[in-house]
Amino acid sequence: MKCINCGTDNKLKDRTANQGRCIKCNHPFAFEPTSMSNVKITDPFFAKAIADISANNTLFFTPKQLLYLLDNRLRNKSFSVIILLIPFTIFNLISAIRSFFLLPLSMSFFLSLVFLTQSISKKINNKVRQKNAKALQFLEGIILVGGILLSLTVNSFPIFFIVVIIGMLDIYLGTRQLGRISLVTQELLFSQSQVKDWLDRWQQINGSILKILPSPNQENTPATVNPDVTAYSFDRLVVCDSAALAQLLIANNFHFENNCAILSITGYPQSIFDTTMQMLRRNPDLKVYAVHDCNPRGIGLVDNLRTNANWFLNSNAVIIDIGLTPRQIIATKRGMFIQSSPESAQAAKQLPKELRQSLSAEELAWLESGKFVELESFTPQRIIKVL
């Protein structure tokens, strides 16, 4: 593992002999991958993750955004039985020529199960699942062609029948999985508390991470605002369904660069919430943009803004839903981190009738299956670019 301080490559025996420090500059290592259980993290890996999530230390980010980035990069990419396809193909052909039919058939069945299992696994990412689905198609193509040639050679209808059924079935399964991969749910490999421990350890050794945001601070004491400022208003307001997202946008100066106000449905930032709302209500042409997670609570954000007296009940403000919505998730071909939970499924079934009528049958089915996507699964750079 390379030292992030001087770049020296330290082998395990070097790190162990020097009490977890670099043999050249004596800088401590924050992580020892060989002693970690479910995931393996190195100092250069963690440093690059921080640099990437912050766009080279130019953007603020939340701890949960770092969690999602680390999870995506640490998913099981190291080993795949796909590499066995070439030697397996050679073995299959030799065995077929020698008429050892049962052995390659049993191995084919085993590999088919492995590829199918990995193509639906919640512990690997979409890219690896896609490779396994394609490998399943390729493998069964080999079985189909080789088996048919063998059956013709030995003039055996039972062999022909078996390989055709198995081959066509697995080609179908592989094709089916390729079409479903973008909608398969995933599970996080580790918890937010583990990331917190890693961050504490990293900052203890390497100093504070300047661009990581703390938990949103809800100040109950109203801030003093210059009367000359409150005489003005805004043409646009962005309402987030979480204080964390509102804090992220404000910290990255989205409100200055796009001449808009930013608030959360929870009232963040509380110290200027009432003053900002007074300013907004002065503008009869106000446009409100609702940005939220793709979950039942987020789907109800626009309705909440329209019917809540603290927001825009009996107001002429134009409220625009800019997502995330189930139809956006369903339509996209890009891999999103889709999760599921019984709580989300139950909340979806309790959505108001008017809101349910605004959703398609496919969207309702998606929500009622418990699926959801969090905006914090995207990097700050991507969220800001989309908004």
Rank of each mutant, 00 (worst) to 15 (best):
K11G: 12
K11A: 14
L12Q: 09
L12Y: 09
R15P: 01
H27V: 09
A30F: 05
A30Y: 03
N38K: 15
A47L: 08
A47G: 05
D52M: 09
N57P: 06
N57I: 06
T58Q: 04
F60Y: 14
L66E: 02
L66C: 02
L67N: 10
Y68W: 07
R75E: 07
N76F: 10
N76Y: 11
S78W: 13
P87L: 04
P87V: 03
P87I: 04
I90Q: 03
F91I: 07
F91V: 06
I94A: 11
F101S: 00
F101C: 01
P104V: 02
P104I: 01
M107Q: 11
S108E: 09
F109W: 07
F110W: 12
S112G: 15
L116R: 04
Q118H: 11
S119T: 12
S119D: 14
I120M: 10
R129H: 05
R129P: 04
Q130T: 15
L139I: 02
L139M: 04
L144I: 05
I148H: 03
L149A: 07
L150Y: 04
S151N: 01
L152C: 14
N155E: 09
F157V: 12
F157D: 08
V163Y: 00
D170C: 15
Q177E: 15
G179W: 12
R180L: 14
I181D: 05
L183D: 07
V184F: 12
L189Q: 03
L189V: 05
Q192W: 11
Q194Y: 09
K196Y: 12
R201A: 11
G207W: 12
S208I: 13
K211Y: 06
S215R: 14
S215Y: 13
Q218G: 05
Q218L: 14
T221Y: 13
A223C: 07
T224H: 11
T224K: 14
V225Y: 09
P227M: 14
D228P: 06
A231G: 13
Y232Q: 14
D241L: 08
D241K: 06
D241I: 07
S242H: 13
A246I: 01
Q247D: 01
N252C: 10
S264A: 11
I265A: 12
I265M: 11
G267V: 11
Y268E: 08
T275C: 12
L280V: 01
R281P: 02
R282S: 13
V288L: 08
P296D: 02
V302G: 04
N304H: 15
T307W: 00
W311H: 01
F312S: 04
N316S: 11
A317L: 03
V318P: 02
P326E: 06
I329R: 05
I330K: 08
I338Y: 03
E343C: 00
A345K: 01
Q346E: 08
K349Q: 09
L351V: 05
R356H: 06
Q357S: 10
S358I: 13
L359C: 06
A361Q: 14
E363T: 07
G370H: 00
K371Y: 00
L375E: 06
L375K: 06
S377C: 07
S377I: 02
F378T: 00
T379S: 15
P380Y: 10
I383C: 00
K385H: 13
